[in-house]
């Protein structure tokens, strides 16, 4: 939209609210190989977008962002499908979740439910059953703001992506930090297996303006392991929500790691969250609210790990 340039200026407008079908000549490509998809994107550049379930792009189209001239559907790329266990050459074991796996399938998958419950839980809070049947886990990650990301961050998930020549693997955390936009094709998620500990706790909480089917105001995920002396031996905290890019709360994690959970420590943790997390304000809530809720939820969860609480 043109900006008003002051009183009396003549402004021309031809952009009434637009919706629905508007371009009539969009090509949809259905490559079978990642390489092929990459080539197509290179060929059409900004006039092309990758698409899989399409729930987000279709919504954006209705809201006025037209499709580019070319849509490159990833849905026929076999290697981006499936859920399977992987053992790498070290002792580490992973669950590989193809990026095309629908959110509904992820949520119901017995392996995910058993070993990575937090992911299943976070997916339950995404949109509605009908949308989850179409939306994919890759799609939820690739735009950098999905509600599953905080959960995946505390699960220490890795992603595998195609960079134009080969498949790369790195932690989701560093992928998100280094590659802001969806220039790459995320092919799968790798969920590391964890040894089960008695003194462990993980949590996921999404807060919206209604109980469900709502953009997140703030999403909080955490994972904490204590030894028998209430000493924190593993801690991961992540926050996200709305258009806020999810982040790990590293300072807070550092304060907690290696210390015994006490009221004093939690107070420090609370302050650390206030110091390192600077969420945005919007017409509905302030950044201050988002930060307070994040701190409240994290500290309340840790409190329950304290003895005799």
């Amino acid at each position: 939209m043109d900006k008003t340039t002051g009183n009396g200026s003549r402004l021309s407008h031809s952009d009434p609210p637009t919706t629905g079908e508007e371009q009539t000549s969009i090509m949809v490509w259905k490559p079978k190989q990642v390489e092929e998809a990459w080539e197509l994107k290179k060929r059409f550049g900004d006039d092309a977008k990758y698409i899989s379930g399409g729930t987000l792009l279709q919504m954006q189209r209705e809201q006025g962002t037209p499709f580019p001239g070319h849509l490159i559907s990833l849905e026929n790329i076999q290697e981006m499908n499936g859920i399977s266990k992987l053992e790498d050459n070290c002792s580490d074991a992973y669950l590989r979740v193809g990026a095309l796996t629908s959110l509904a399938v992820c949520k119901k998958d017995p392996l995910i439910q058993e070993g990575w419950q937090l992911l299943a839980e976070s997916i339950s809070d995404i949109a509605s059953p009908a949308v989850r049947n179409r939306g994919t886990i890759g799609g939820n990650i690739v735009y950098g703001v999905g509600d599953s990301i905080p959960a995946l961050l505390v699960l220490d998930a890795k992603v595998s992506w195609f960079d134009g020549t080969k498949l790369q693997v790195d932690s989701l955390w560093s992928y998100l930090k280094n590659f802001a936009s969806n220039q790459h094709i995320i092919t799968s998620l790798l969920l590391p297996e964890k040894s089960v500990s008695i003194q462990e706790k993980s949590w996921f909480k999404k807060v919206g303006r209604r109980e469900s089917f709502i953009p997140s105001l703030i999403t909080i995920a955490g994972y904490c392991v204590c030894d028998y002396d209430q000493m924190v031996v593993d801690i991961k905290l992540a926050v996200g929500g709305g258009s806020h890019h999810p982040q790990r709360l590293k300072i807070c994690e550092d304060i907690l790691y290696g210390s015994k959970i006490t009221d004093h420590l939690l107070l420090e943790a609370y302050e650390a969250i206030n110091a390192e997390f600077h969420p945005i304000s919007d017409p509905f809530v302030s950044g201050e609210y988002r930060r307070t809720v994040a701190a409240n939820v994290i500290v309340s969860e840790l409190l329950t790990m304290q003895a005799n609480r």
């Binding site: 009183n7 407008h13 009434p16």
Partner: peptide, 16 residues
């Protein structure tokens, strides 16, 4: 679809 395209071709000049 044509109606949608047509409304975009209507130019209105405003003085805010």
């Amino acid at each position: 679809e044509i109606a949608e395209r047509a409304v975009k071709l209507i130019r209105v000049e405003y003085d805010p």
